[in-house]
């Protein structure tokens, strides 16, 4: 057993810093000393609702980078820097037989078992991916959300000339980064009500507007919904050109009514992008190749001790970009 200073979420949704006892790893497991852990919108959902958690008290966090401290099966050398594949598929269903992210009862690190917002975590070695030596850990922490963004962009083979991104949280930012690296000539328009987020979008060359009526949004070849606000799909259908594509990567929870005829008449392709498939190692390679494209996307960083206070504030007011904690 070792002890790990951790963010603790109780079943009554109270947040504090405490200590977890971490079991010694067996074969097929590693003890990882965590260097950085990022916060995702789904973590905030867990903090609000307690949804999806299978072990109480919980320690959230499924975006993290760390160093292997113990690995009895020698699947990884001690000292190897790794990121974690956040998906925990059941391994038994028909979906799993096709792809991990098609599991019928998929769970996530930080919900199925304690996650990255602590000093040390016990992780199955088949969820670990080695980080390239040239990549700073502070950037490697972006690998998991970047894999999600890559998966979304990969849904559309031809991005066209005009892309519209709804929502410029970390996923919207990373979708933009990938499009700019892949096809710098594409005109990207971003819709987000937050001035600091629009500031980041503009700094990276996008046209950034607060809402549709304010801006001169041309009909887009592809619309990425990374916002999930009520009626985001209806807006996407309206703002995409005929024959264009819509990729829904946000988890919008408000029911909305659309006219199926519009989808048919416009000849649209609508894709759902859930998590990622095999993009995690690709994400690490991209971060290592273009670190300066990603550095500014981490807007807030704190020692883990500050996490309860910072996260409580984030429940009311989201940060501009990616928020990371150092255990």
């Amino acid at each position: 057993m070792s002890s790990s200073r951790a963010l603790i979420l109780t079943e009554s949704l109270e947040l504090s810093i405490g200590v977890r006892e971490v079991a010694d790893p067996g074969v097929g497991e590693a003890l990882v000393r965590i260097e950085w852990a990022g916060i995702c919108g789904s973590d905030l959902h867990v903090l609000r609702t307690g949804d999806w958690v299978r072990v109480w008290p919980a320690t959230p966090g499924h975006e993290f980078v760390g160093v292997v401290e113990q690995c009895p099966g020698a699947e990884f050398t001690i000292g190897t820097r790794v990121v974690v594949d956040s998906r925990v598929p059941c391994g038994a269903c028909d979906g799993c037989a096709r792809a991990a992210n098609q599991c019928e009862s998929i769970g996530w690190v930080g919900e199925v078992f304690p996650g990255g917002l602590q000093e040390r975590a016990l992780i199955p070695t088949d969820l670990l991916v080695e980080v390239p030596a040239s990549l700073e850990p502070e950037l490697a922490v972006l690998a998991e959300p970047l894999a999600v963004a890559l998966h979304a962009v990969n849904k559309v083979p031809d991005l066209g000339a005009e892309v519209l991104i709804l929502g410029y949280g970390p996923i919207g930012m990373l979708v933009h980064a990938e499009i700019a690296l892949r096809r710098p000539e594409i005109r990207v328009t971003v819709v987000d009500p937050s001035p600091p987020r629009r500031g980041i979008a503009a700094a990276f060359g996008a046209v950034a507007v607060a809402n549709y009526v304010d801006g001169d949004i041309a009909k887009a070849d592809v619309v990425f919904d990374a916002a999930g606000y009520p009626n985001a799909l209806r807006d996407s259908i309206e703002w995409v050109r005929n024959g264009g594509a819509i990729v829904i990567v946000a988890l919008g929870h408000a029911a909305e009514s659309i006219l199926p005829a519009h989808v048919a008449e416009k000849g649209l392709r609508i894709h759902g992008a859930n998590g990622f498939a095999d993009e995690l190692p690709v994400a690490l390679t991209k971060l290592a190749a273009s670190p300066e494209r990603f550095r500014a996307l981490i807007t807030d960083a704190y020692p883990l001790a500050d996490a309860p206070e910072v996260l409580r504030a984030m429940l009311h007011e989201p940060a501009a970009g990616k928020v990371v904690f150092r255990p």
Binding site: R295, I298, Y302, P303, A305, R326
Partner: peptide, 14 residues
């Protein structure tokens, strides 16, 4: 400097 490095520095000072 960059936000993560500044967080590490604050940790170090603490």
């Amino acid at each position: 400097g960059w936000a993560p490095i500044m967080a590490e520095l604050r940790s170090l000072l603490r």
